[in-house]
Simulated scan of single mutants.
Amino acid sequence: MSVTAAPGFVAAGVAAGIKASGNPDLSLVATADGKPVAAAGVFTRNKMTAAPVITTRAHLEATAGHAVAVVLNSGNANAATGQQGIDDAEAMCAAVATELGVDASQVLVCSTGLIGIPMPIDVIKAGIPSVVAARSADGGQAAATAIMTTDTVAKQVVIDGGGFVVGGMAKGAAMLSPNMATMLAVLTTDAAATPEQLKAALVYGVADSFNALDVDGCTSTNDTVLLLASGLAGSVDEAALNDAVARACASLAAQMCADAEGATKVVRMTVTGAASDEEALLGARYVSRSNLVKCSWYGCDPYWGRIASDLGSCGIDFDPSKFSVSYGGITVCRGAIDADHDAAAVASHMAGRNLEIVADLGLGTGTATILTNDLSHAYIDENMGTS
């Protein structure tokens, strides 16, 4: 049931005709009773901010953090579309509001797809009555499918918080370097919480999940993570809510990484022993964005020299004599010199789908992990044209 696993929510997904393929492209998540509930969001820091992000922020501010529904479309990002884009985002909200009998400010909006292309707003508006009519407690799968772009599978999650539930859906397979992954996520819970508590839970939840996901170093214009709370489970411990939201975000981020465009490897790149956590994060992200390193992962080559070079040049404290690297727990470099190791065991690890790589700077207690991928021919094939 994913995004409808939490009591109090319904969802739907339909094919409105935005995509030439005829695949589902219009999605809705709403409260079951049509009444507003507490809501919060975190958004892209890209200054080329898409119209739906601007509109959703404005609506959350106007309602003091409350919403009845979220309408989402795939196939068009409604980004770099000027004032017409804002008008179109507002028109989507207004059309849903009319069908639900609520104020347009109580509807949030998300879009994903091509940038700089005018929205087919008439097509979308014509499809809204159908998606609103289709909403049900069993509509989570359809809703998650309708927000897919180059995704190959729908991303969904359900977390049992012990007396309450967090459910969610997300999309994202490229332009995944969120810093609040193109990525959208809608989470719901039946826990009772204020908008401020939901915002705090989101900030906590995205820190080591979506914000630690770096597929290709590109931050989308549309990144949005929303959390709505029906309150039907009553008050819950805030720490428990934060933990459940964080686990939901971590699951969705891992699913995005596993489905990244052209990826053959899912890589956990950890830098430890740094002078600070901040320097560890900078180093781990720098390595994760290195095309040379990514190519070696694709080639199943434990070429630690590229990692050493990146960490030595990224502006953080670095001492070659204290530096080591391990693949799958097997140290291959110590003191920036090749170390005796079981080459067959390392080769077996590199041949697998999931890679665990740790670079230890030997300088302090700072540590950070980035979830990332290799770079394959398929990624280039997917992105060498407008996509």
Score class of each variant (00 low, 15 high):
G140N: 07
R57W: 12
D160Y: 14
L198P: 10
T63N: 03
P36C: 01
V166N: 09
I307D: 04
P118C: 07
K35S: 02
A185E: 11
D190G: 06
A104E: 14
A67V: 09
E279K: 00
L100K: 10
I380Y: 13
E382I: 08
T331R: 15
V266E: 04
P24E: 05
A368S: 14
G305Y: 15
R268H: 15
G352T: 01
T31M: 10
D381R: 15
M148P: 15
V346E: 10
T369D: 00
T150P: 09
S321K: 15
M350Y: 08
L202D: 03
T149D: 07
L282Y: 05
V206L: 03
F323N: 01
K171Y: 15
S276R: 03
G162E: 03
M169W: 12
A207P: 02
T56K: 06
V3S: 10
P52D: 08
A133V: 04
E279P: 00
S177D: 12
T372V: 03
V245Q: 01
R285S: 14
A126Q: 06
G82I: 15
A200K: 04
K199T: 07
I117C: 10
S326R: 01
D103I: 03
S27I: 09
A146G: 03
A181C: 08
A79Q: 02
N78C: 06
G385F: 02
T270E: 09
A39M: 10
I124Y: 04
H349R: 04
A254F: 07
T150L: 08
S111P: 08
C93M: 01
C314D: 04
L241N: 01
G234S: 01
D214V: 09
T386R: 12
R306P: 01
G85Y: 05
F210Y: 12
A274P: 01
G205L: 07
S276F: 13
A263E: 05
A207L: 06
A351I: 05
A144Q: 06
N354S: 14
I337Q: 12
E90T: 14
C249I: 02
A229Y: 02
